[in-house]
């Protein structure tokens, strides 16, 4: 495939911006509009844009991790985020907050869970987009 030069240039400029935005949305999600789901959608549209501008293979290389693996890792993170509560005798998935913070970001299980959601969304969308795009290219 491969799009126009304008699209390609725009995609190369937009990709880092969109990814940054997605991470921003992910981390601020607990207090301001955003969150893992929205952030995941933003990130996947960035990669989807790349699929249009170049092709699936290039976009895959950029993602570095197989989208299916990403899905799996995300599900695992989501499921694991529920465990710490059980060690404290609380219900599965009850939020735990730790006194560790990196500037404005603090470490807690909802954040881990949200990162899991983020990865699953990217993995899901990109798996479908890649599959369709590759079927198209062949």
């Amino acid at each position: 495939m491969g799009g126009s030069l304008i699209l390609q240039t725009a995609a190369r400029a937009l990709l880092p911006l969109l990814l940054l935005l997605s991470v921003f949305l992910l981390l601020r999600g607990h207090d301001e509009p955003g969150g893992g789901f929205i952030a995941g959608l933003v990130a996947s549209s960035a990669f989807a844009l790349y699929v249009f501008a170049y092709d699936a293979a290039t976009s895959r290389r950029l993602l570095t991790v197989d989208s299916r693996t990403m899905m799996g890792v995300g599900l695992l993170l989501g499921a694991l985020a529920g465990l710490p509560a059980m060690f404290r005798g609380e219900a599965y998935l009850a939020a735990q907050w730790w006194d560790v913070s990196l500037g404005p970001i603090s470490l807690n299980t909802p954040l881990i869970f949200d990162i899991g959601v983020y990865l699953v969304v990217i993995g899901t969308v990109m798996t479908i987009v890649f599959a369709l795009a590759e079927a198209e290219e062949n």
């Binding site: 607990h30 909802p110 959601v117």
Partner: peptide, 13 residues
Amino acid sequence: GKGRNIVNVILVD
């Protein structure tokens, strides 16, 4: 839930 975004607090907590 220690978060001001209610939608997100519901979703993840």
